[in-house]
Design a protein around this nucleic acid. Sequence first.
RNA 1: GGGCGCUUAGCUCAGUUGGUUAGAGCUCCUCGCUUACACCGAGGAGGUCGGGGGUUCGAGUCCCUCAGCGCCCA
Length: 862
Amino acid sequence: MAVTESAFDPTQIPEKPTLDGIEAEWAQRWQDEGVYAFNRSATRDQVYSIDTPPPTVSGSLHMGHVFSYTHTDTIARYQRMTGKSVFYPMGWDDNGLPTERRVQNFFGVRCDPNVAYQPGFTPPFRGDPPKDHQPIAISRPNFIELCEELTHEDEKIFEDLFRRLGLSVDWDYLYTTIEDRSRRVSQRAFLRNLARGEAYTQEAPTLWDVDFKTAVAQAELEDRERPGAYHNVAFARSDGQGDVVIDTTRPVLLAACVALVAHPDDDRYKPLFGKTVRTPLYGVEVPVLAHPLAQIDKGTGIAMICTFGDLTDVIWWRELNLPTRAIIGRDGRIIATPPNGLESPSGIAAYEQIAGLFINQAQTKVVEMLRESGAMIGEPRAIMHPVKFFEKGDRPLEIVTSRQWYIRNGGRDTDLRGALLNRGENLVWHPDHMRHRYSNWVEGLNGDWLISRQRYFGVPVPVWYPVNADGDTVHDSPIVPTEDRLPIDPSTDVPSGYTADQRNQPNGFIGDPDVMDTWATSSLSPQIAGKWEDDADLFGRIFPMDLRPQAHDIIRTWLFSTVVRANFEHDSLPWKNAALSGWILDPDRKKMSKSKGNVVTPIDLFEKFGSDAVRYWAASARPGIDTAFSEDQMKVGKKLATKLLNATKFVLTFPQPDVEAKPTHPVDLAMLARVAETVREATIAFDQYDYARALERTEAMFWWFCDDYVELVKGRVYNSQGADAAGSAISALRLALSALQRLLAPFMPFTTETVWRWWQSGSVHTATWPNTAELGPIGDSAILDPIGEILSQVRRAKTDAKTSQKTAVTEATVSASESVLAAFELGRGDLSDAGSVRSWVTVAGAGETTVSAVLAPPEPAS
RNA sequence: GGGCGCUUAGCUCAGUUGGUUAGAGCUCCUCGCUUACACCGAGGAGGUCGGGGGUUCGAGUCCCUCAGCGCCCA
């Protein structure tokens, strides 16, 4: 029995109880008492483990965090009260571009893996370097050290906010995504993928951001509508039989053209297949080919294939075995030297006109040259069309050929895709329809997961390559470290069997210069949080985890990539359940945005309404549903908290008459039946992850308890009907209150803890979740509605007479059915007290229940 | 173009295998300082459940269709 009443001292209850300032007090006591400490002696079946999303520390916490983390916390608290040892860690995401930029701007440094590590390095600035300051290049290990220094302050602020919100996190299991342990996990998992053939390196056309100068994965793309223009361009047939006119939005790529393509069934172009044409301006001879991806009804029905204008070009290039004529460099400029095949003097002269220009400048130049040459047919026709962007980028992506690392994800392998789809099927989704987002994404993959990034800050790809006697890098046989060396940085660490002076030398080695995509590390959050391999005992107790809570916009990235890694490494799902939270919307239903300037910070709301009230607002939202920000809901939450305070104070005014006292009165037993029903409903709802329903049922019960039941029996507890009748009511009140406080504990941890400790020992948050058995024998709740209806009608009579509710009724006549009258008799004494009714007359009949009341004259003012 | 979700009172939302006069809170109106609570209580007003069609004894709930809003993916 985890619920034990402490020796109750009524003087412990303040005369005017308040909720002001309770957050800081309880947060400290919970920490001191270890209320949320994970009990790692618990076996897997006794553990409930949560794969918490690590917030990005370079931003700030906003209402969206408060919203979704509250949802998870209610589940964690429920599970803890059912007796589970809850593994609820927190992580900070400090690996990635946003942190990299902040470190640069704060310290006036930049990360350069070619620089040697400098122990005890002091940055030139700590905040606000002057505008003309040139960033100092420092090694990656030094950069990571500065990152940890900078994020430390923010992490403290985040932690304080989450504590103030009342998250029942065990802070002893805190992790960050750039710390040694995370880098070790990330690199170890990668090396195992490599050893099993799940990771591979390949030189291939890759989507490339020219500003960030890095490759970008499919999951990070987005389409944006951009203005463009179709240009009709004439290609001269090599056989002199006239021109072929193509349609293109990117005449700038004419120099990269390797073929023309039309649909195999297109009668207009069938005679041309196998023949050649010459590119305008450059005079390069290219074949006319057939491929089913060419669209008959688009433009002139024949297109030029360039290396590379878009992803369709890549498919054509691959499937038609075409040569490569790259003209776009990684810096977004036209490459200085003409591509292979462009050899005629006039062609070279034309190319020199655009060499070195940015793409849009070159496009203008090419159009101008086409006009002059007469190859432009008519004027460009403006259109809007979707263009691929890096989701964080400002310029359209280009496609360049480069060597990259990939992890297989089913994008090129039907069997693996089927296995991953099957994983999604076996995951329990909350709400269920979110599973479609997953299957849509997996079914639409068109390539493996590109994990290498040409950035400097991040978790390095942990391999080196041999350099042969000619000084060439041998990419086919990477040198890998043993796992006990991890984490390593190939830019500073030396592979075993080599010496440092062999770096970048013939017959020596070279470090892989790239880092891994942040998702390649984040996808291992269960392994990082659970200390995979570093603490196998712990990991065995928490994995696979029970719950992944996250936002629905990162199903394709975080959720999917985590499934991929667990599938390879553990041949299992990483968790049993995934709970997808919705967005916070402005009251006008638009997605909340900082730019609108109306964003309130969480801390202001905590101070204005109290944390429990803010949590109440969050927990009122159905799982996965976008929800309007509403201070009104917080006011309601605050009202509920205040009510709980006062109702508890009232009930505890009446000490338990004696230990053996049990509810016996039919009205009391009926009330307990309703509480039992609420316990059942709330438990079922929580087991289905529907915290909002659990709250709604509990809240409705609690208000009925206060407004109706307490008012009904108030006279009896003041001894109007004798000691036994009072004892029944008092013990029933206390049984119900105990259950209600615990039912509300997941939602209002601060208020419930306050009132619980007035009369119980220990924390409400480690108390047993209420069950129906503890309520003892229960009665027939059906008698409550008729009794309530009669009381309501008595009250209405007083309201209609515009008189006080304490006005006495000299005689009340109840006309009702036999069954209603039977209920009335059971509640007669309480109704007399609650309605100040001096005498009753009953009339049995068939129709509706009606009560007519004769009111006593108002008391003369004294 | 494909997929998913949403549309119920002025506002925010419940409504769980179709079942009696569709519920709650907020807002609004009236009344009441009744010894747990004025950070309160009592009572009341307010909806042809987005439109149309169908199945059924019976539809907010199931089916079809149209419209609007939102998100995801091409």
